[in-house]
C-alpha cells in the first residue's frame, strides 16, 4: 500500500465524519471505521478535524437561531595604488605573462590583503570591483593593454568591467583565468585553484601545460591544478551559495557539519571543532554569519541534541 498524502487522508476523513455524524459521535466506532483508523496513525487526527468542522458549522446554525548588513564599502585603495605602478608596467610595454620574474614583480601593482575574518570590497580604476574574502592576498596591476591579478592566497570575486582591449587575467598558482567582461571568483587551495563563473565566460588553462584551454560559462565551475582533469561542472545553485561570503554569510545546502566547521574556521580565530564523528557527518541547511560560529554551534546543538563546550581557543560540539 502506498502512503497517502495529507490531503488524501483529509478527504477520506471528511466522508467518515459525515457517516459517523448520522450514527452519533459517542457510539463505539464500527469495525469498518476502526479498521480505517488503524490503517494510518494520521487518520485519527484527520477525523477529529473533519468532525470539528461539522461542529463549527453547526455552531453557526445555533448562532443563526439565536540582511545581513552590507559589507560594501566605498573605494578603499591600498597604499601605493598610484599611477606609478601603472607607468612602470606600461614602460615594459609587453604582457606581464611574457615578462621575466623580476620585471613581473615590478609590474605586479598594488597589493591587497585581508585579515582573518575580514571581507573587503575594492573598486578598481577601470570600473571593475573585487570582493576579497578572508585571509587573502592579491596584487592587481592595471596596464594599458592588460589587467593582471595575482592571487597569492585565499579567495576573491571579480566583477570585471568590459574592455576588449585589456583582457583581465588572474593567476592562481599554476592556474590561469582570462576574461573580458564577466564576473567570477577564484579560490586558491594549495596547488589547486577553483573557478566559479557567475556571469559571462572565462577561459581557463594551466601555465606551462599543453593540456589545452577550456571555456567556462556562467553557472559552471572548475577545479584547476597539476593533477586535475580539465572538466568544468555546471552547478549554478552551489555557486550562488559558495559566494554568500560576499554578504558576510555562510550558506549551507546540505554540507556535513565537518565541512561547515571548516568553512567557519576560514573566518574565525576561535575554531569550531566537532568531537563526535556521527554528528560530524550529519548534514545541515541554513544561512549564517561568517563571524558568528557561536550562534551556529548553539543552533546545531538545539536541533541535533549535541552539547556545546567552549573555551578561549575553541567551540566544541560533542
Amino acid at each position: 500500500m502506498s502512503i497517502q498524502t495529507a490531503k488524501e487522508v483529509d478527504d477520506e476523513a471528511a466522508a467518515w465524519a459525515l457517516k459517523v455524524d448520522g450514527g452519533g459521535l459517542d457510539a463505539e466506532p464500527t469495525a469498518e471505521l476502526q479498521n480505517w483508523l488503524d490503517g494510518d496513525p494520521r487518520r485519527g487526527g484527520a477525523l477529529l478535524r473533519a468532525q470539528a468542522a461539522l461542529s463549527f458549522l453547526d455552531r453557526a446554525r445555533a448562532l443563526e437561531n439565536g540582511t545581513p548588513q552590507s559589507l560594501a564599502q566605498p573605494v578603499s585603495r591600498g597604499p601605493g595604488f598610484t599611477r606609478r605602478g601603472m607607468v612602470a608596467a606600461g614602460a615594459g610595454g609587453v604582457l606581464a605573462a611574457s615578462l621575466g620574474a623580476v620585471a613581473f614583480l615590478a609590474g605586479e601593482g598594488p597589493r591587497y590583503a585581508t585579515q582573518l575574518g575580514e571581507i573587503r570590497k575594492v573598486s578598481l580604476s577601470d570600473g571593475s570591483t573585487v570582493d576579497i574574502n578572508t585571509s587573502s592576498i592579491l596584487n592587481v596591476a592595471l596596464h594599458t593593454d592588460a589587467r593582471n591579478v595575482v592571487l597569492h592566497r585565499g579567495e576573491a570575486w571579480f566583477e570585471v568591467a568590459k574592455d576588449p582591449k585589456r583582457p583581465f587575467l588572474v593567476k592562481a598558482g599554476v592556474a590561469r583565468f582570462r576574461a573580458v567582461g564577466t564576473a567570477f571568483s577564484v579560490r586558491r587551495m594549495n596547488e589547486d585553484a577553483e573557478l566559479l563563473v557567475t556571469e559571462g565566460r572565462v577561459e581557463a588553462w594551466l601555465s606551462g601545460s599543453d593540456g589545452g584551454r577550456v571555456m567556462i560559462d556562467a553557472g559552471s565551475k572548475i577545479l584547476l591544478g597539476p593533477d586535475t582533469p580539465l572538466r568544468p561542472e555546471s552547478a549554478p545553485d552551489e555557486i550562488e551559495r559558495s559566494l554568500a561570503w560576499r554578504g558576510g554569510q555562510i550558506s549551507l545546502g546540505g554540507e556535513t557539519l565537518l565541512e561547515a566547521a571548516d568553512e567557519f574556521n576560514r573566518y574565525n580565530r576561535r575554531k569550531l571543532l566537532i568531537d563526535n564523528p556521527v554528528l560530524a557527518r550529519r548534514q545541515f541547511v541554513g544561512l549564517f554569519r561568517t563571524d558568528d560560529p557561536h550562534s551556529f554551534a548553539l543552533a546545531v546543538a538545539a536541533t541535533s541534541g549535541a552539547r556545546v563546550v567552549e573555551d578561549a581557543e575553541a567551540i566544541r560540539l560533542r
Binding site: L252, G254, Q283, F284, V285, G286, A299, A302, T303, S304
Partner: peptide, 13 residues
C-alpha cells in the same frame, strides 16, 4: 526538524 536526514537549522531556529 530533529528527525530529518538533513537538518534545516535556519528553519528550526
Amino acid at each position: 526538524v530533529r528527525r530529518a536526514r538533513i537538518i534545516r537549522i535556519d528553519y528550526a531556529t
